[in-house]
C-alpha cells in the first residue's frame, strides 16, 4: 500500500541520473565561478575535457576583469609594453569574447589591440562596461565597431590609449546614449619620471595634443555623462567651458594635471555644473625650470598652479 505512489520521485531522480554529465557540469561551473581567474586559466582548464568545458561556460564570462591582477604592484610593468604581452592579452580577450557567446557585459583589461577588440565588438552586443586603458594599438578602427555594435555601453575607459582620437569619442557619443562614465586620462607629461623605464619614451612623447577638440566632442555628443576623468589633458579654458555647457548632469569631474586651465575657468565651470559633487582641480607641481615664471605674473594664478607636489599614479 505504501509504495503505491512513488512514480513521480522515482522518475525525476532517474532522469537526473541520465543527465549525470550535466549535473557535474553545473556543479563544476558553480565551483569555477568562485575560483580566481588565475586558477581557472592556469590549472582547472587543463585537468580534463569536461573541466575545460566547464571553465569555458558562458555564464562565467558575463564579467571579465583583470584589473586586480594589473594593480598588483609586484608585477613587472615594463614587460606589459612589449608586443609579446599584447599578443597574450589579445588571445585571452578573443577567447573570452568567443566563450561568452554574447553574454559579456563587462570587460576590463589593458594592453589589448584592435584585432581582439574588433572581435569583442562583433560578439558582445550586451557590453556595458569597457575598460582598455594603456592599449597603445587600439585605434578608432576597433572603437568605431564598438560604437556601432555595443549601444548599451554605459562606462568606457580609454585612458592612455593615444591612438584613439576625437572621432571615436564622437561615434561612441552618438551611438551609445547610455554612456554615463568616460575616463580619458593621460600620462603625467609634466613630470614623466614615474613612467620612465616602464612606458617606452616614444609613447610618452606621443601624448594627444588636441584636448580641446576631444572636449568639444564630449560636450556635443555625450550629454548624459555623470562621471568624467580627463587627467593631464591639454584642454584649455575653452574646452572646459564647452564641457560645462554640454554635460549638465556631471557629478564627478577630474581635471588633475590639466595644466592649461586657469582658476577662473575652473570657477566658471563649477558654477555652471549644478549637480557636481566632486571636482578634482588641476593642482600639480611643475618643476620651475620647465616654465618661465614670468609668464605667470598674476599672483593668484601663480598660487593656484604651484600648490601641491602630489603625483598621479598610473
Amino acid at each position: 500500500m505504501e509504495k503505491q505512489n512513488p512514480e513521480t520521485p522515482e522518475s525525476s531522480c532517474g532522469s537526473s541520473v541520465r543527465n549525470w554529465a550535466d549535473l557535474t557540469h553545473v556543479c563544476l561551473v558553480n565551483v569555477f565561478s568562485r575560483l580566481p581567474d588565475e586558477d581557472r586559466w592556469k590549472s582547472a582548464m587543463f585537468v580534463c575535457k569536461s573541466w575545460m568545458e566547464a571553465t569555458q561556460d558562458r555564464s562565467l564570462f558575463v564579467k571579465f576583469d583583470l584589473e586586480t591582477v594589473f594593480e598588483n604592484k609586484k608585477l613587472d610593468r615594463s614587460a606589459w609594453w612589449e608586443p609579446e604581452f599584447e599578443k597574450r592579452i589579445d588571445r585571452m580577450v578573443r577567447s573570452v569574447a568567443e566563450w561568452s557567446d554574447g553574454a559579456l557585459q563587462e570587460l576590463r583589461v589593458r594592453h589589448c589591440s584592435d584585432q581582439a577588440l574588433s572581435l569583442v565588438a562583433e560578439r558582445s552586443p550586451n557590453l556595458q562596461v569597457l575598460s582598455i586603458r594603456s592599449s597603445p594599438n587600439v585605434t578608432d578602427e576597433s572603437l568605431s565597431k564598438i560604437a556601432f555594435s555595443c549601444s548599451l555601453l554605459r562606462e568606457l575607459d580609454i585612458s592612455y590609449c593615444y591612438e584613439v582620437s576625437y572621432k571615436s569619442l564622437e561615434l561612441i557619443g552618438r551611438q551609445c546614449p547610455n554612456l554615463k562614465v568616460l575616463k580619458r586620462n593621460h600620462m603625467n607629461w609634466l613630470d614623466p619620471s614615474q613612467h620612465l623605464g616602464i612606458v617606452p619614451t616614444e609613447y610618452l612623447n606621443a601624448l594627444p595634443q588636441d584636448g580641446d577638440r576631444e572636449a568639444s566632442r564630449v560636450a556635443m555628443y555625450m550629454r548624459n555623462l555623470e562621471h568624467l576623468e580627463l587627467r593631464f589633458s591639454k584642454m584649455s579654458a575653452k574646452g572646459l567651458a564647452l564641457v560645462a555647457e554640454g554635460c549638465a548632469n556631471l557629478k564627478y569631474l577630474d581635471l588633475f594635471g590639466c595644466a592649461s586651465l586657469t582658476s577662473r575657468a575652473m570657477e566658471q565651470a563649477s558654477t555652471k555644473l549644478k549637480n557636481l559633487s566632486t571636482l578634482v582641480r588641476p593642482n600639480f607641481y611643475i618643476p620651475r625650470a620647465l616654465f618661465n615664471v614670468e609668464r605667470y605674473g598674476h599672483w593668484r594664478l601663480h598660487d593656484e598652479r604651484f600648490q601641491t607636489n602630489a603625483f598621479f599614479q598610473i
Binding site: 592556469k42 582548464m45 580534463c48 575535457k49 608585477l75 588571445r91 585571452m92
Partner: peptide
C-alpha cells in the same frame, strides 16, 4: 580525474589560452 587530452591538444590550449601573466617573474 583522468587526463583525456592528447599532448597535442594540451599544447594547443596552452598556446591559445595561456594566462597572460604566466611569464612574469613574480
Amino acid at each position: 580525474v583522468v587526463n583525456d587530452f592528447t599532448p597535442e591538444e594540451e599544447e594547443e590550449i596552452r598556446n591559445q589560452n595561456a594566462w597572460a601573466f604566466e611569464r612574469d617573474p613574480y
